[in-house]
């Protein structure tokens, strides 16, 4: 689930995080609102993620990983559409099988939503996202918690990897860890987690930490950024209203 290349991802930071956040949500909202046969109508919407990927030169590798990871889910639901739909729909002048339309619509929808979320992730470093969330009135406490969790994920994942490797080196014939051993392995990890939490807390108090005062930078919206956001959002909504 974690991708090894993630430590080296370059996040672009030329777009205002609040803009991307709002645009992404509008986009996903619009995509999700299309009905299950709206394949053709949704095609123009793919311009947004594609344009972002090209203009911001986003990491294709990461996008590839994320899309591949979503494949099993997309396949199961997509194929279920082939099984459960048995009717014909009017497509321009022809009656075609609805199941294939539903199948391709679902796959496209899923891809677009995932691409949009990934574009948000790749264009918005976490500290900027934190600022944007704060300006959307998300409670400070949750934002700080988000930052802290994010801070330690990679460290912990590496630790988990080391634990797993250490086990596998001494039990090369096992494919997965024996449950009894697993309990103490994860248990130890958990105990170390508590110790670490304690030390992080100490480091915070030594520097006079309080939730209210913890500084999270909120970037100002320039006029251009504001116009960019409004125009894009309105474009998506207008498109949705015109097409249906």
């Amino acid at each position: 689930m974690i991708y090894p290349h993630m430590l080296n991802i370059v996040q672009r930071r030329n777009i205002h995080p609040l803009s991307t956040l709002i645009i992404t949500f509008t986009y996903i909202f619009v995509v999700a609102s299309f009905h299950s046969y709206a394949f053709i109508e949704m095609i123009p919407l793919s311009l947004y993620p594609i344009a972002m990927i090209i203009f911001c030169r986003l990491s294709i590798r990461h996008i590839k990983h994320v899309l591949i990871a979503s494949l099993p889910f997309a396949t199961v639901i997509g194929v279920s559409q082939l099984l459960f739909i048995d009717e014909h729909i009017l497509f321009f002048h022809w009656y075609i099988e609805a199941r294939w339309m539903a199948f391709s619509t679902f796959v496209l929808k899923n891809t677009l939503a995932i691409l949009a979320a990934t574009v948000l992730f790749l264009t918005t470093p976490i500290e900027q996202l934190a600022g944007a969330l704060l300006s959307l009135r998300i409670p400070r406490f949750l934002v700080i918690q988000l930052l802290l969790t994010h801070r330690y994920i990679f460290l912990f994942l590496e630790e988990a990897k080391r634990l797993r490797e250490a086990y596998m080196l001494r039990a090369p014939r096992h494919r997965a860890i024996k449950l009894s051993v697993w309990g103490s392995l994860v248990g130890h990890l958990l105990l170390r987690t508590f110790d670490r939490a304690e030390r992080v807390y100490e480091a915070m108090t030594l520097r006079g930490f309080s939730i209210q005062h913890m500084h999270i930078k909120i970037k100002r919206w320039t006029t251009e950024e504001m116009i960019y956001t409004y125009v894009t959002v309105i474009l998506f909504i207008v498109y949705r209203l015109v097409v249906i």
């Binding site: 974690i2 994920i153 988990a160 797993r164 997965a176 860890i177 697993w182 994860v186 958990l190």
Partner: peptide, 11 residues
């Protein structure tokens, strides 16, 4: 963060 790590370790 621990939850992420724990999910990595299969049994």
């Amino acid at each position: 963060a621990f939850v992420f790590a724990a999910q990595m370790i299969n049994f």
